[in-house]
């Protein structure tokens, strides 16, 4: 029994090892999304921000949405020269990381009547985007 099985066993093990070798590069570096850190990864967050938010937002210019530099910790709808929806103006929210997380899960569920629709369904992506936003310092005072 043992004799009969073992060559086969070796072949199977060899095949698995071979497969593992091929698979190694992908597995050796787990996708960042698979390892959500409590603090979030601002470098990955910046890339996500550019791809998912950059169509409408910039750090230093009001575009389709308001400018974002220093948004973490700021009261909602507080950029003076941006036309917010009345829903967001009346929300009385402060953009804590927890509120930003709820917002990014579904803005119109959190603040019905808002004009922002974009949402981010992967929790680790939200954490990284928020970490990036938190890393943006307020602009230097105007001369």
């Amino acid at each position: 029994m043992v004799r009969l099985l073992s060559p086969l066993h070796h072949v199977v093990v060899a095949a698995l090892l071979l497969a593992a070798c091929y698979a190694q590069p992908a597995h050796a570096q787990p996708a960042p999304a698979a390892s959500p850190k409590a603090a979030g990864d601002p470098v990955r967050g910046e890339k996500l921000y550019e791809a998912r938010c950059g169509g409408c937002h910039s750090l230093d210019a009001n575009r389709i949405g308001p400018k974002h530099r220093g948004v973490v910790g700021r009261p909602a709808a507080s950029i003076p020269d941006f036309m917010y929806s009345s829903a967001l103006k009346k929300s009385k929210l402060v953009w804590t990381p927890a509120n930003l997380d709820r917002w990014l899960m579904g803005p119109s569920r959190f603040v019905p009547g808002t004009r922002m629709a974009a949402f981010v369904s992967v929790p680790a992506d939200r954490t990284d985007i928020i970490a990036y936003l938190a890393s943006t310092t307020p602009p230097p005072p105007k001369k």
Binding site: E50, A51, C53, C56, S108, A117, A118, F119
Partner: peptide, 18 residues
């Protein structure tokens, strides 16, 4: 690229909420 990629994602993000 930033605007086009952002716009593609923005449109996909609109489908659920509309």
């Amino acid at each position: 690229l930033r605007l086009e990629r952002g716009a593609a994602n923005a449109y996909l993000g609109l489908i659920g909420p509309i």
